[in-house]
């Protein structure tokens, strides 16, 4: 069952040569169960940090994060979290099928988690039929990332976290992967949170876009996307899409609707 996500005043700071560096400053967001959220911001704004805190890869310095009603560490121990890394992170000695089945092998049969999917079912879902026994090195970058998405879904996670999963792919492959990800998400009944640095991607994919600003990293704005589902590529040329993209852009650059920029005042570096 998909779970909602509540982040309240989550902060993260590091000590660097005696100086305290704030990577994330009191970030709050909430995402309903089964929803699709996107976090967007320039490099170094702490968006990956936030995602990794939800996955319990790193712990917040302050604040609280709840997946459903549980702490991330509990959710992780229950295998309720699926994570897709920036790089596909496949084990090179395991075939496509074996890589997808890896979480099953790690968790073992004793796990209480009953909601599972078979690797073959997922191979079909991510359209990799015929490549079951291929090794990762034989696959293109896009195919590798599909394997990694299938792997993240094999334990039927309650929440799926995606850290710039298509950042390294070319624009065309990326657009296709996005459409597929939406289809997979719709079929998988899971909450999804996507980190990206592409405005178009964030608006096209998500119900809510969380706009972040750097130094210190914080969520500066939440933009709701009033586009219906299922999303289609045609929607990307609709007025609603443009308006939403502009609102996200305003949030990112501090540019007003007329386009007069305030870059001289030390606004964040332009991304994309």
């Amino acid at each position: 069952m998909p779970k909602d996500l509540t982040v309240k005043d989550a902060s993260k700071w590091f000590d660097s040569r005696g100086q305290q560096v704030i990577a994330l400053d009191r970030a709050s967001l909430s995402l309903p169960a089964g929803g699709f959220g996107a976090i967007i911001g320039p490099s170094g704004c702490g968006k990956s940090t936030l995602l990794r805190m939800v996955a319990d890869i790193i712990a917040p310095s302050a604040g609280s994060i709840l997946v459903g009603n549980e702490k991330p560490s509990t959710a992780r121990l229950e295998h309720a979290i699926g994570f897709v890394f920036q790089s596909a992170t496949l084990l090179p000695w395991r075939t496509v099928r074996e890589n997808i089945a890896l979480p099953l092998a790690i968790v073992g049969r004793k796990s209480k988690r009953v909601a599972r999917r078979t690797p073959d079912e997922l191979i079909e879902l991510v359209s990799l039929q015929g490549f079951e026994d291929a090794l990762p090195a034989q696959l293109s970058g896009g195919m590798q990332q599909r394997v990694s998405i299938a792997r993240a879904l094999v334990l039927a996670p309650d929440i799926l976290l995606l850290d710039e999963p298509f950042g390294a792919l070319d624009e065309i492959t990326r657009q296709r992967m996005n459409l597929e990800l939406l289809r997979i998400w719709a079929e998988s009944s899971t909450t999804a949170l996507l980190v990206t640095h592409s405005i178009d991607e964030a608006v096209f994919m998500a119900d809510s876009v969380f706009v972040m600003s750097p130094r210190p990293g914080r969520i500066s704005q939440v933009v709701d996307v009033p586009l219906p589902r299922p999303r289609t590529l045609q929607m990307m040329s609709s007025k609603i899409f443009f308006d939403t993209v502009n609102r996200v852009r305003e949030g990112l650059y501090g540019i007003d609707a007329q386009g007069t920029a305030d870059l001289a005042a030390g606004a964040p570096a332009v991304v994309q």
Partner: peptide, 18 residues
Amino acid sequence: YETNHMELFHVYSASRWR
């Protein structure tokens, strides 16, 4: 091993033996 591989195993709460 690669760090991100280890993080993957961490997300799945793998036992040390696994």
